[in-house]
Simulated scan of single mutants.
Amino acid sequence: MTVSEPRTGAVPTPDEDAAAELVPAAFEEGRYDADGDPTREESLARLLGGGKAALEGSVPPIAFLIAWLATGGELLTAVIWSLVASAATLVYALVERRRPKAVFIGMLMTVIAAMIAYYTGEARNFFLIQLLSNAASALAWVISIVIGWPFLGIIVGGLIGTKTRWRKDPVLLRAYQRASWIWVMQYVIRVVVFTVLWWLDETTWLAIMRAALTYPLIIACVAVSGWVLFAAIPKSHPGIRKPQVAVAD
């Protein structure tokens, strides 16, 4: 029986994430990707599911914007179309046998936002819950970083199976903390933009920026935070899948 040779020049198959890149053959031993392939770098975008989740999250706000502009600012119609879009993404997720929790949360927030706008009588308040939720998220991420439990580490650790062992590795803890600041900036950008437009009562621009700051900003956030995360890990370290936990003598 012969032993097959190691894969040193494998090319990603068409169904794999387009963001994956080939790296030199001298890629550090042991720092493989999720498939155990030494020819492909670890990627935060791949770990978090690529851009599919971000794209699905941008569908409802885009539907709201289109309906809002098409009807000349009819809140009820725009909300209905946003809910229809949410339902469509929900069905798509179920067909693909994925957990549609994020879609459910999005639909719930849309309903709550519509109720706030209806009872206050101001269309701009439809975006108030977005403003407040982003402010709360920014604060929560900051707290998680300060207390040594950065959310990015918790999320990635849960996805790759290391759970919270990375907290006992100073290198990984510091890397997750640095990368988590990029996520804080994402929320802060939305808070600043939404606050200014809400204060000026620019409902149309709120709808435009709500859509513009969903998919593009999330993709940018994942890309930049991924770069920060892996740049903060020395080449001598085996990577995020192998936390180096010190053993007491």
Rank of each mutant, 00 (worst) to 15 (best):
E5Q: 14
T8K: 13
T8W: 04
G9P: 03
D17C: 08
A20T: 08
F27N: 06
R31L: 05
Y32F: 13
R40G: 00
R46T: 08
L47T: 13
G50K: 00
K52R: 13
A53E: 02
A54E: 00
L69D: 01
T71I: 04
L75K: 03
L75T: 01
V79Q: 06
V84K: 04
V84E: 00
L90A: 07
Y92N: 07
Y92R: 15
A93E: 05
E96H: 14
R97L: 03
R97I: 02
R99E: 11
R99I: 10
K101S: 11
A102H: 04
A102T: 04
F104A: 13
F104N: 05
M109S: 08
I112V: 14
I112W: 01
A113K: 07
Y118N: 11
T120L: 07
E122R: 12
E122M: 11
R124K: 15
R124M: 12
I129N: 02
I129M: 15
I129A: 05
L131C: 02
L131I: 06
S133L: 15
N134F: 08
N134W: 02
A135G: 11
A135E: 14
S137N: 11
V142F: 07
I145W: 01
I147E: 09
W149F: 09
F151D: 12
F151G: 14
G153W: 07
I154G: 05
I155N: 06
I155V: 15
I160G: 12
T162W: 01
T164G: 08
K168S: 15
V171H: 03
V171R: 05
L172I: 07
L173H: 08
R174N: 11
A175G: 12
R178T: 05
A179V: 09
S180N: 15
I182M: 14
W183T: 10
M185C: 09
V188Q: 04
V188P: 01
V191E: 01
V196R: 13
L197G: 00
L197E: 01
W199K: 08
L200I: 07
L200R: 09
E202C: 02
E202H: 11
E202F: 11
T203W: 09
T203V: 14
L206V: 08
R210K: 13
A212C: 13
A212H: 05
L213S: 04
V222Y: 05
V222M: 14
A223W: 09
V228D: 01
V228S: 06
F230C: 09
K235W: 06
H237N: 09
H237S: 11
P243Q: 05
V245I: 15
D249E: 15
